[in-house]
Each structure stands twice: as structure tokens, then as C-alpha cells.
Amino acid sequence: MNDPALAHIAQDPIMARLIAETPSPKIFNDYADDVYLALLESIVSQQISVKAANAIFIRFRRLFPDNYPHADALLLKTTDELRSAGLSFQKIKYLQSVAEFSLANPIDRAHLDPMSDEEIVQYLIPIKGIGRWTVEMMLMFVLSRPDVFPIDDLVIRQRMLRAYSEKTEGLMGKPLYKVLHEIANAWRPYRTEASRYLWRWKPEN
């Protein structure tokens, strides 16, 4: 196993079996140098299907001359204009919050890259509509941080419950979270890669 991340997380026998059963995860990094656009896209995609989110985001971007929702231009759009893209009133407020934040606070890679993962979480969650899970997804898929463990992700928890049933059976709430963190600590400093495999793994019924 030439990949140091895989070699490390495979020291966990359960993860080794899971990796053997699972195709290598594809890594998409469409917004590698554009945290602002990634945050806008994450808001649009909340609580709707991927297909619907993609269609709405395309229509949203087409509202702007260069197909890019620059913060100042976004804030000049009327509610009716933004609604025409298929956005809800709540998501419009959240998109405007991202724009307002970006005009007052730098969110480019040069500013964020020196920060720790937790510092970035605390820096961005004051934006309305942006919670810890959203920032963790950005850390993993936009900033390519190697050691993120998104424990609040439902799929991650469900897959860990299946894979580590002997350790997690009957646990709920804080005791469950404690055990899941303990399991994931063995994957440091490559918890992002382990999480990618958990997402892609298809447990047998």
C-alpha cells in the first residue's frame, strides 16, 4: 500500500476490511481557490437533491453578467430576481449573509490557509446559514485538509455504527460521540481519507 494515508488508517483492522471492499473515492475539488463560491453553493444545496441544487445554482449564476455572483453585485439583486432562480427566501438571506461577510472579512485561501481547521470553523460560522458541518465539508473538499472528522454527518455516524457495532451497540448521545471520536483518533492525521471511505462504503445487508 503505497499511499501513506491508506497505510496508516488500514492499521485499524476494520478500516482495512472496509478499504478492501470499497472502490477508491473520487476526489472532487471544483472550488479549490474559491471559498466564497463554495460557501454560496453549499447554501443553495442545503436540504434538496443534488440534481435540484445544481439546476438552481446554474440559474443563480446566470443572473450575473459574467456568470459569477460577486458580493457587491449579489447584494444589489432584488428578492424577486433571486427568487426567479428557484431560491427560497431563507436561502436568499443566507446568500446575502455570505456576501456581506466576504466584503468585511477576507475568505481567500491566502487568509485561511495559515489557520487551523478549528480556527476556520470559528471564523466562518458567524455567517448565517453556515454551520460546523458546512465548514467541515469545505475543509475536506475545498481546502483539502487531511484530518477532518465530520462526526455530525449522519452517513458517517451510520456507517461507523455498522462497521464498529461491537463498540457502539446500545450507545446514544454523548457516550456514542465519545466512542466514535476514540475510534477515529486512531486514524489521525488522515481522518479525511477515512471519512471518504466511510461515505463510499456500501455495507452488506
Rank of each mutant, 00 (worst) to 15 (best):
G129K: 02
V148L: 00
V142N: 01
R191F: 09
I156P: 01
F149Q: 06
A184M: 02
L171I: 14
L103M: 04
K128E: 10
P126N: 15
P150N: 06
L180A: 00
A186R: 14
M140C: 11
I107E: 00
S116T: 11
D108A: 13
F141S: 10
L161A: 04
R157I: 01
G173D: 04
G129D: 08
M138V: 15
P146K: 06
M138W: 08
R188P: 10
V155P: 02
D152N: 09
I125C: 02
W133T: 13
M115R: 01
E182S: 07
P175N: 04
E169P: 00
A104P: 05
K178W: 04
M140E: 11
K178F: 03
V155E: 02
H181F: 14
L124P: 11
L161D: 12
V148M: 00
N185K: 13
G131I: 11
T134Q: 08
G131D: 04
D108S: 10
D152P: 00
N105P: 05
R162F: 07
V179N: 07
K128G: 11
P150G: 06
A104V: 15
P146T: 05
Y190E: 09
S116P: 10
A186Y: 11
V179R: 13
G129V: 04
D152C: 01
H111R: 12
M140V: 10
V179M: 14
R109N: 04
M140N: 08
M140K: 14
Y177A: 15
R159M: 05
M115C: 12
A184Y: 10
L154M: 13
E182M: 07
R132Y: 12
V148W: 00
